[in-house]
């Protein structure tokens, strides 16, 4: 188990290998479909982003509302592929250093990850109640009108992830499947 604390630099990102189990500490930002589209449109229009993504990690999640006494409701990963159209721009122009989600990524995203040194982490899809327990604080920092799709700043403690695709482009999905394939 490897522990990292955000922000993470390029050398740290490049040291992580597909299959490594990692515990993330510090702050991470949430962002999914609508927030990505807005950030992408802002950059295209020459505007600044509401948060500085350099060396930071974006978690693809749209949490459930918090019950009284809870920090956040269920907060598991959503399918990353829907963000693929926007991700290369965030990596290349803003040096986004990590992403947490589930499912595969496009060749364009992987190329940007290799070029800049960005790592793609997987969290267990559907383990929303369990993952929420590792989130200690949640504050909306941008696009509040988007509700569950707003950008939150999350303070996490030992947030459990697995390196899905590393900075060399090694892909745990491909490696894992071929190991157990019997067809």
């Amino acid at each position: 188990m490897i522990k990292i604390t955000t922000p993470i630099d390029e050398a740290t990102a490049r040291s992580l290998k597909a299959g490594d189990q990692v515990l993330i500490n510090g702050i991470i930002y949430t962002g999914r479909d609508a927030a990505h589209k807005r950030m992408f449109d802002a950059l295209k229009a020459g505007q600044e982003l509401p948060v500085d993504l350099r060396d930071q990690i974006i978690y693809y999640v749209g949490p459930c509302p918090a019950k009284p006494g809870q920090v956040i409701g269920a907060a598991g990963p959503t399918t990353s592929g829907r963000m693929d159209a926007y991700t290369p721009t965030l990596i290349r122009e803003k040096y986004l250093r990590g992403m947490i989600g589930k499912g595969g990524r496009s060749p364009e995203v992987i190329k940007a990850m290799r070029d800049i040194g960005t790592v793609y982490f997987l969290a267990i899809g559907g383990a929303g109640a369990l993952l929420a327990q590792r989130i200690k604080k949640a504050t909306v920092v941008a696009y509040e009108d988007l509700g569950p799709e707003a950008i939150y700043c999350l303070v996490v403690e030992d947030f459990p992830v697995i390196v899905g695709i590393d900075c060399q482009g090694n892909n745990l999905y491909t490696i894992g499947r071929s190991q157990y394939r019997q067809l």
């Binding site: 499947r177 157990y180 394939r181 067809l183």
Partner: peptide, 11 residues
């Protein structure tokens, strides 16, 4: 038999 497994990480 596809080998996809839990969370598609092989199994």
């Amino acid at each position: 038999k596809t080998g996809i497994g839990p969370q598609a990480l092989g199994g």
